[in-house]
């Protein structure tokens, strides 16, 4: 047990929690926006994957990490746009649409990768760029906090800013008001001329944009290349985090951090010979339990029934 604490209570561990939380947090914020508009986007995994590859390809051909990032974000938005087009225009079932996006991404990225690099496993032959890490002046010199909070990848800081941005968007802007109204009572929104479809398009595109940033982080920060299926379930963890976070910005961010910690722990505990495969299931187990607790309490609330005295 002592060795466990030795692993956890280090600045290195805290640093790595933020590092692994970043992609989850981006995607979870994306899932949050689309869920608040009443549509559940389960294509996060696939969108992240496509964006990760796009970031690598664009940065390799333009020799600019920033253009690569832009490409990744646009790719994520575009894929979400395709999903939105089919689900909102053609009324494809949103869940099956998400399944299709994931299927498309897992094979399609390998297809493109092979065409461009002749390799189906990774993008080693593409000279892609990585986005920088940043030391924050003043903060970096503070003991404990400095090593934890400073020196992160630029997108990690973006993800933290994104939490506040999404909060502002949802709770303090006209668009946020409309997104929430569409999610809660689409008929009400429609009746005052708010185009439900337009709002849901916007929300889905935003969810794709954020998932795209998460994907870019995977291949231009977390790793410095694209590898096959590199998102490895982070899209699902993000959906789980949003669900556990009860669709609030703060809840989603905190749960993402918690799941990030579980992820970091899985890496750290490998040193202690605790199987990473099992630790890796923790976020999902936590989500099932969370869902269950919520569902049971809801049912209990409904079913408080007094025994009929005459039925004795």
């Amino acid at each position: 047990m002592n060795s466990l604490f030795d692993v956890i209570f280090t600045t290195d561990f805290a640093f790595s929690v933020l590092r692994v939380t970043t992609p989850i947090l981006f995607a979870a914020l994306g899932a949050l926006i689309s869920n608040r508009a009443g549509i559940i986007n389960i294509g996060m995994e696939g969108i992240m994957l496509v964006s990760a590859l796009t970031g690598v390809i664009v940065s390799a051909y333009t020799h600019s990490a920033w253009v690569g990032l832009l490409g990744a974000a646009l790719a994520g938005t575009l894929i979400a746009g395709i999903l939105a087009f089919f689900t909102l225009k053609f009324k494809t079932h949103i869940i099956l649409g998400g399944v299709a996006i994931n299927m498309f991404a897992s094979g399609g990225t390998v297809f493109i990768l092979y065409l461009l690099s002749g390799d189906k496993g990774s993008s080693t032959s593409l000279a892609s760029k990585v986005l920088p890490s940043v030391d924050i002046p003043l903060l970096k010199d503070i003991p404990v906090l400095g090593p934890i909070l400073s020196g992160h990848h630029i997108l990690t800081y973006f993800s933290i800013i994104a939490v506040f941005a999404v909060y502002y968007l949802l709770n303090r802007t006209p668009l946020g008001l409309r997104i929430r109204s569409v999610g809660e009572n689409p008929h009400a929104a429609q009746s005052v001329g708010v185009s439900v479809i337009k709002i849901q398009y916007t929300a889905l595109l935003l969810s794709g944009f954020f998932a795209g940033l998460g994907g870019a982080y995977m291949s231009m920060g977390y790793l410095s290349l694209f590898t096959r299926d590199m998102v490895a379930g982070r899209g699902w963890i993000a959906i789980a985090a949003e669900s556990m976070g009860r669709s609030t910005t703060a809840g989603t961010a905190l749960t993402s951090l918690l799941f990030g910690a579980a992820d970091a722990l899985a890496n750290a505990l490998q040193v202690l010979k605790i199987p990473a495969e099992l630790i890796g299931t923790l976020p999902y187990v936590a989500t099932v339990i969370g869902l269950l607790v919520y569902a049971v309490s809801e049912t209990r609330k409904k079913n408080r029934k007094l025994k009929s005295p005459a039925a004795k």
Binding site: R172, T173, P174, G176, L177, R178, R180, S181, E184, N185, H187, A188, A189, Q190, S191, V192, G193, V194
Partner: peptide, 29 residues
């Protein structure tokens, strides 16, 4: 005026009133 009210229950009266024609201050509602 619909028979089944077209209102968002968790919003305030004012929020429901202006939904779709929200007054702005900068980018904020």
């Amino acid at each position: 005026v619909h028979q089944h009210f077209m209102l968002v229950p968790s919003f305030t009266v004012a929020e429901n009133m202006v939904l779709g024609m929200e007054p702005r201050k900068g980018t904020s509602f």
